[in-house]
Amino acid sequence: TGEEYIAVGDSTAQQVGDLTFKKGEILLVIEKKPDGWWIAKDAKGNEGLVPRTYLEPYS
């Protein structure tokens, strides 16, 4: 379980453990880390770190 967020920009994984996503994708945020990198899952079930500045709450 988690909260749904929509990507407001494209982000390409810079290192192992990062999640690549495109603008408009809905991501499920699993954990919000205080350093600004959140753990999220995409629609295909891929999981990784995403920069919170690229996400907005999805409603």
Rank of each mutant, 00 (worst) to 15 (best):
14 Q>V: 13
23 K>N: 05
31 E>I: 10
43 A>Y: 09
47 E>N: 05
30 I>Q: 04
2 G>L: 11
33 K>M: 09
39 I>T: 07
23 K>V: 07
42 D>H: 02
47 E>Q: 13
9 G>T: 15
39 I>N: 04
57 P>W: 06
3 E>F: 09
6 I>T: 04
29 V>E: 00
55 L>Y: 01
34 P>C: 11
17 G>E: 05
50 V>P: 03
48 G>N: 01
5 Y>T: 01
29 V>A: 02
45 G>V: 00
24 G>A: 03
6 I>G: 02
8 V>S: 06
58 Y>A: 09
26 I>K: 06
24 G>C: 06
32 K>M: 07
7 A>P: 01
32 K>S: 03
31 E>H: 12
40 A>R: 00
25 E>W: 09
37 W>M: 14
21 F>D: 01
56 E>C: 13
34 P>E: 13
28 L>W: 14
4 E>F: 15
39 I>K: 08
43 A>K: 10
18 D>P: 06
54 Y>M: 15
21 F>P: 01
24 G>Q: 02
49 L>T: 10
34 P>G: 10
29 V>C: 01
46 N>S: 06
29 V>F: 00
10 D>T: 07
17 G>Q: 06
54 Y>Q: 14
8 V>W: 05
34 P>L: 10
48 G>P: 01
48 G>M: 03
45 G>M: 03
23 K>S: 06
29 V>K: 00
34 P>R: 09
32 K>H: 04
58 Y>S: 07
9 G>L: 15
55 L>F: 06
1 T>S: 12
51 P>G: 08
40 A>D: 00
56 E>K: 11
50 V>Y: 02
52 R>H: 15
24 G>P: 00
1 T>D: 12
45 G>A: 03
41 K>M: 11
13 A>C: 11
23 K>A: 09
9 G>E: 15
33 K>E: 03
55 L>E: 02
9 G>Y: 15
37 W>T: 10
3 E>K: 07
18 D>V: 15
9 G>F: 15
48 G>Y: 05
2 G>C: 14
35 D>H: 05
8 V>E: 02
53 T>D: 15
9 G>R: 15
42 D>V: 02
25 E>P: 00
20 T>D: 08
37 W>N: 11
20 T>L: 08
37 W>G: 06
5 Y>R: 01
38 W>H: 02
45 G>Y: 02
42 D>P: 01
43 A>S: 13
35 D>K: 03
47 E>I: 15
29 V>R: 00
39 I>R: 10
57 P>T: 05
19 L>C: 03
27 L>D: 01
58 Y>D: 03
25 E>H: 06
38 W>T: 01
27 L>S: 00
35 D>I: 03
50 V>M: 02
32 K>N: 02
5 Y>I: 01
25 E>Y: 04
18 D>C: 15
20 T>H: 10
9 G>I: 15
15 Q>P: 05
1 T>Q: 13
37 W>H: 09
43 A>Q: 11
18 D>I: 15
21 F>G: 01
43 A>P: 07
37 W>D: 06
19 L>A: 01
50 V>F: 01
21 F>K: 00
8 V>P: 03
30 I>R: 04
41 K>H: 06
38 W>A: 01
31 E>A: 11
53 T>L: 10
6 I>P: 01
43 A>W: 09
3 E>N: 08
27 L>G: 00
10 D>W: 05
20 T>R: 08
28 L>T: 10
16 V>P: 14
4 E>Q: 14
52 R>D: 14
6 I>C: 06
41 K>W: 06
43 A>G: 10
44 K>P: 02
39 I>Q: 05
9 G>D: 12
16 V>F: 12
21 F>C: 03
6 I>Q: 06
2 G>F: 13
24 G>R: 01
7 A>W: 06
3 E>V: 09
42 D>A: 02
29 V>Q: 00
55 L>S: 00
55 L>H: 01
53 T>N: 13
34 P>T: 11
47 E>Y: 14
34 P>A: 12
55 L>C: 04
38 W>L: 04
5 Y>K: 01
55 L>M: 06
50 V>K: 00
27 L>A: 00
13 A>S: 14
26 I>C: 06
9 G>C: 15
28 L>M: 10
33 K>P: 07
12 T>M: 13
48 G>W: 04
28 L>Y: 13
26 I>S: 03
3 E>T: 08
34 P>I: 09
17 G>W: 07
22 K>F: 09
41 K>G: 02
26 I>H: 05
58 Y>N: 07
26 I>N: 02
59 S>R: 11
43 A>F: 09
59 S>N: 13
49 L>A: 08
30 I>C: 05
17 G>A: 05
32 K>T: 04
32 K>E: 04
35 D>Q: 04
14 Q>H: 12
53 T>P: 08
23 K>F: 06
54 Y>T: 07
43 A>C: 09
29 V>N: 00
9 G>V: 15
6 I>W: 05
49 L>M: 10
14 Q>I: 13
52 R>Y: 15
22 K>E: 05
40 A>F: 03
36 G>V: 03
57 P>M: 06
58 Y>Q: 06
10 D>N: 09
17 G>H: 06
23 K>H: 05
53 T>S: 13
11 S>C: 15
56 E>N: 06
59 S>T: 12
40 A>T: 03
22 K>C: 08
59 S>M: 12
33 K>R: 14
46 N>F: 07
16 V>R: 10
40 A>E: 00
10 D>H: 06
34 P>N: 12
13 A>L: 07
36 G>E: 04
8 V>K: 09
43 A>I: 09
51 P>W: 15
3 E>W: 14
32 K>Q: 06
10 D>A: 07
5 Y>W: 13
45 G>F: 03
30 I>G: 02
9 G>K: 15
32 K>P: 03
20 T>N: 09
14 Q>A: 12
2 G>P: 12
24 G>S: 03
21 F>H: 00
22 K>Y: 09
18 D>A: 15
43 A>L: 10
2 G>K: 07
59 S>H: 13
15 Q>F: 11
41 K>C: 08
17 G>C: 06
30 I>Y: 06
8 V>T: 12
13 A>Q: 08
57 P>Y: 07
3 E>Y: 09
51 P>V: 07
8 V>C: 10
48 G>K: 02
7 A>C: 11
1 T>V: 13
53 T>F: 11
57 P>I: 07
20 T>E: 10
44 K>E: 10
6 I>R: 08
